[in-house]
Design a protein around this nucleic acid. Structure first.
Length: 363
DNA sequence: TAACCGTGGCC
DNA sequence: TGGCCAAGGTT
């Protein structure tokens, strides 16, 4: 174990300055108004790799519809995905329900209060375990997220990629050495709050920072050089052709199943990836035995992590009726709106509801 | 271990 | 406007 970069006096002052600053400056966030472990757990799942501003509207809606472990465990997956629609990383939503079921079946309806047990829940890693234990149960458990990494990298001038290997372990050890037994949840949140509001990646507000006098990087004027992040992966272009098939005022949609690579359980216009858009379109014509127009009805560009998706929607005429199944469905415009869609295909849906359906109804 | 999973906001 | 990134987890 590496020696901590701080002595005891510094540690106490850092704790005090940070907590005092937090008390004066913390944002009024909905999950800071509750002590309910379930609500806090839901907030932490939503906040994984997702900014506070994005989560806020989802959080209240979700808890109104699914206020406790029981209702979440019993809910239809489709309902949960609809509440999650647009938030991304949809595996989180499915894991959340799996966690609710496990809590009811294996933990007597209550969140476990040890790191070892809470880590057994799907979708809970070291960060979320620390967050829930400290915030909901006042356990002196540390947490490390992107904010903490950025703050520590500057406070102690930690170099290299802090997200992997030995460096990452070191950050955790510092976090553990710093956590106070009094108000651990507030301390953890204060650390993240600092990273989210002052210790910013691009333009850190060092003059307002309660830790300025302790910050090694600020003293040396190298705060914008830290943290040292690895280069992002190169983007990959992905053409995807989607079909708009209509019959008797109903539209054909497909549910993505379990062997899909991503967006599992979400609905979409039937679609196929190809090396080129032409190839994708022809795949679809063959699979559904339809004739598609050569020109797309609507074209969307969408970024998913490092994939640049070119999504084209082609109007198709069916030669014979396509049979519905569990994964293939004919829906009315109203039903179409109620299905959980991904963001990219959701844009297509919006366009269809606005332009295709209206035009169709008026003739 | 490193690549993969989504999205909207930001400059 | 294109590239980068955020209260991470999983495999």
């Amino acid at each position: 174990m590496k020696k901590s970069p701080i002595n005891n006096i510094h540690m106490l002052q850092i704790q005090k300055n940070l907590l005092d600053w937090y008390d004066q400056n913390k944002r009024d966030l909905p999950w800071r108004r509750t002590q309910d472990p379930y609500s806090i757990f839901v907030s932490e799942m939503m906040l994984q790799q997702t900014q506070v501003k994005t989560v806020i509207p989802y959080y209240g809606r979700f808890l109104t519809e699914l206020p406790d472990w029981q209702s979440l465990a019993k809910a239809k997956e489709e309902k949960i995905l609809k509440l999650w629609e647009g938030l991304g990383y949809y595996r989180r939503a499915r894991n959340l329900q799996a966690a609710a079921k496990m809590i009811i079946e294996e933990f007597n309806g209550h969140l476990p209060q040890t790191r070892e047990e809470i880590l057994k829940l799907p979708g809970v890693g070291q960060y979320s375990a620390g967050a829930v234990l400290s915030i909901a149960f006042q356990k002196a458990e540390p947490l490390v997220d992107g904010n903490v990494i950025r703050v520590f990298s500057r406070l102690f001038v930690l170099r290299g990629n802090l997200k992997t290997g030995e460096n990452h372990q070191n950050v955790w050890e510092i976090a553990r050495s710093l956590i106070p037994s009094k108000r651990p949840g507030d301390f953890n949140q204060a650390l993240m709050e600092l990273g989210a509001t002052l210790c910013l990646s691009d333009n850190p507000q060092c003059l307002l920072c309660p830790l300025f006098q302790f910050c090694e990087a600020a003293q040396r004027g190298i705060q914008t050089d830290l943290p040292e992040m690895p280069k992002a992966a190169k983007n990959i272009e992905v053409p995807i052709a989607a079909l708009l098939v209509e019959n008797k005022k109903k539209i054909l949609v497909k549910k993505r199943d379990e062997n899909e690579k991503w967006l599992k359980g979400l609905w979409e216009f039937p679609s196929a990836e190809g090396k080129t858009m032409d190839e994708g379109r022809q795949k679809m014509e063959k699979e559904y035995n339809v004739m598609a127009e050569k020109k797309p009805f609507k074209s969307i560009r969408h970024q998913i992590t490092n994939h640049k998706i070119h999504l084209d929607l082609f109007i198709a005429r069916n030669k014979k009726t396509i049979k519905a199944s569990t994964h293939l469905k004919w829906v009315t415009p109203a039903e179409l709106e109620d299905l959980p869609f991904s963001s990219a295909q959701g844009k297509l849906r919006q366009w269809v509801l606005k332009n295709f359906v209206q035009k169709n109804n008026s003739k």
